[in-house]
Computed example of a mutant assay.
Amino acid sequence: MLVRIDQEKCCGAGSCVLAAPDVFDQRDEDGIVVLLDAQPPAELHAAVRDAAAVCPASAILLDQA
């Protein structure tokens, strides 16, 4: 799995951090998403898919290949 984020779309809700804190974080100054791991291990894939699903701005893009 390859994870990409669109920081321009991010609204800073933080739902991705709650769903997958090992993969996503937020900038202190504005809450915009920060990608910690673009290729997370298999055991985190379900959490990353959940994070993408709950993102209100659809700012998380996943390549399942």
Rank of each mutant, 00 (worst) to 15 (best):
M1C: 03
M1I: 06
R4S: 02
R4E: 11
I5H: 00
I5G: 01
I5L: 04
Q7K: 14
C10H: 06
C11Q: 11
C11D: 13
C11A: 15
C11R: 15
C11G: 10
G12M: 05
G12S: 02
G12Q: 01
A13R: 12
G14V: 05
S15R: 14
S15F: 14
C16V: 10
V17F: 11
L18E: 13
A19Q: 12
D22H: 12
V23H: 05
F24K: 10
D25A: 15
Q26H: 07
R27S: 04
R27L: 07
E29N: 11
D30G: 12
D30K: 13
G31V: 04
G31T: 06
I32V: 11
I32F: 02
I32D: 00
I32Q: 00
V33F: 02
V33T: 12
L35H: 11
L35W: 10
L36Y: 03
L36F: 03
A38V: 12
A38F: 09
A38T: 09
Q39M: 11
P40F: 03
P41Y: 11
A42F: 07
A42R: 11
E43Y: 07
E43L: 05
E43V: 04
H45C: 01
A46S: 13
A46Y: 04
A47I: 03
V48G: 07
V48T: 11
V48R: 10
D50F: 04
A51N: 02
A52D: 08
A52Q: 13
A53D: 15
A53G: 12
C55D: 00
P56N: 03
P56W: 01
A57S: 12
S58I: 02
S58G: 09
I60D: 02
I60Q: 02
L61M: 09
L62K: 00
D63A: 03
Q64K: 08
Q64G: 09
A65S: 15
A65F: 14
